[in-house]
């Protein structure tokens, strides 16, 4: 990658923004597993593996499984955020591999939020 200018920065921003937002036709849903030291210690890596395994086993090509950092509520980790295009993101808490499987089956495929371990819908706001 060559040196970039401020104009390039704007272009990268636009391209990257497009990629970050879910659109129908492209990826339909995204799972973000929150992986910082705290989450990993609580078992986030196993949860991530379970999502990846499930997505592969079910051939879910329109599901993106990605990682991000701590969501703040360390006592409820492992946590994951599930976004389906056009709906408010849902945060799940106290996860394990089995619960990950249920989220894929019931929420991502079935369209119904798994209320037992869903914390809330929506996102935090910037100030």
């Amino acid at each position: 990658m060559p040196r970039i200018t401020i104009e390039d920065l704007k272009k990268i921003k636009e391209e990257a923004r497009q990629k970050m937002t879910l659109r129908s036709g492209d990826a339909r849903a995204r799972v973000v597993v929150h992986m910082s030291t705290c989450g990993i210690a609580a078992g986030a890596r196993e949860v991530l593996d379970a999502f990846l395994r499930d997505a592969e086993a079910r051939h879910l090509t329109d599901l993106l499984v990605t990682t991000s950092s701590c969501a703040g509520l360390c006592s409820r980790e492992p946590m994951a955020t599930v976004e389906i295009a056009g709906q408010a993101p849902v945060k799940y808490v106290d996860l394990d591999p089995a619960k990950a499987g249920r989220i894929v089956a019931e929420h991502i495929l079935g369209g119904a939020v798994v209320r037992e371990f869903a914390l809330a819908a929506g996102s935090e706001t910037a100030s």
């Binding site: 990257a16 923004r17 973000v32 990682t67 991000s68 969501a71 935090e124 910037a126 100030s127």
Partner: peptide, 20 residues
């Protein structure tokens, strides 16, 4: 949130996410 505005939202390993 000011300092933690991007927590849990961007992939910290991708500079493109931060630029976005």
């Amino acid at each position: 949130l000011i300092v933690l505005r991007n927590r849990g939202l961007i992939d910290p390993d991708r500079i493109e996410d931060y630029i976005a």
